[in-house]
Design a protein around this nucleic acid. Sequence first.
DNA 1: TTTAAATAACAGTAATACTATCATAAATAA
DNA 2: TTATTTATGATAGTATTACTGTTATTTAAA
Lengths: 225, 225
Amino acid sequence: MKLQLHIKMNEALFLRNPESSELGKNILKHSVSLIYKTGFEAFTFKKLAEEIGTTEASIYRYFENKHKILVYLAAWYWTWFEFQISFHTNNIKDPNTKLKKVIKLLTTKVEDDEQTNYINESLLHQIIIAEGSKSYLTKQVGEDNKHQLFKPYKDLCAVIGNVILECNPKYKYPRSLATTIIEMAHFQNFFMNHLPSLTDFGKHKEETELVSFLIDLVFSSLKKT
Amino acid sequence: MKLQLHIKMNEALFLRNPESSELGKNILKHSVSLIYKTGFEAFTFKKLAEEIGTTEASIYRYFENKHKILVYLAAWYWTWFEFQISFHTNNIKDPNTKLKKVIKLLTTKVEDDEQTNYINESLLHQIIIAEGSKSYLTKQVGEDNKHQLFKPYKDLCAVIGNVILECNPKYKYPRSLATTIIEMAHFQNFFMNHLPSLTDFGKHKEETELVSFLIDLVFSSLKKT
DNA sequence: TTTAAATAACAGTAATACTATCATAAATAA
DNA sequence: TTATTTATGATAGTATTACTGTTATTTAAA
């Protein structure tokens, strides 16, 4: 018997809670593998239905459209990731060490939680790198934001921002630095793999170098008085 | 008689050169205003054709699909922006001052070049902020990159990277820092306007604060030996 | 002035993004 | 247990998107 931690999702994300049924869980599971495989643009409810062995109409009972699935997955991921942080930094007192750990967690390949649930965190991590920003770079961002759909991302930003303030209470831009860390962990990773000349760690594709870059960037700013 | 500077675009971006005809120029002009108005997702060739007063088929003779238009506009913008840098930093010898100028240019609202040409740089700047990363966050990024479609962005990154190296020849991550500056200038701006709690300059929406954040971030890293 | 090229006008197809209806199966409540 | 609600499957259908193709007409070049 394994401990299952359950993430309670914002109800505005779905029409019917996908966690409440087998079909719903299949929608999540196969959304992850299908978006991973085809990319978000080519991902359709038709293809998803075929993968699952159900119909488009059935999927529409769970999610309004594919954009909502992406926002759902992003929200799930950030909630899960915030837990990862609290888990892995649990015993760490020194905020500097804690912040370094956060950077490493953001940068390192995620290992799948061994079928703990229907979401493959490792694939989802890759999806968030390549598609995550599309969840808010839309015309509906204001509307979606009103419904609190980005709360998990904001909460994470606040958590990291607080660690930053612990490192240097006088630092003036904790939230912007937090989002910079998050976004750059992902963008630099994407660039490293697809547009390497935009980075300084192209050839070897070593994540450790990306970690070094981010740590240097962040702690230079924080060391100043 | 005004001096028109002409940007020679990569031929892989289009089927027929849009700069070679009135219709082509109209496609560019109205693409900018329509993407600005509706967002890239809702932007279609049908709507574009209606705006221009032409047919879908005619537009397809210029561009393969709407993604290519976005990549075209992004390429145009970065080429134009690189020129802006060389223009505005022309007499500046001190690399630190130069880098600050670059940050300000990236962050400040662009003023339209007074009908110098068919592209409204001010609107395009807003488009690049909200849609720019969608030009490469796709499954075709490798293919597009092979055709050099992202060369203007890479060139800009190299230019800024060189200024960074002038500031501190020992700095190890000039390109990654350059892309960080570029992307964060845009993302923080987007957050400021749409998801303000992700930043530290929400309420007043002052670009000057964003500039301060970026300058602090960058020069902290570069001051170290 | 002829001829070539570009565009408009129109038709048509396949895929996408949905909505609606009805039958049936499964879960739940009486 | 049966009645009833609820979820799903099966199927159909619509509007829009993303294209391709054909022909006539206009415009520009030789």
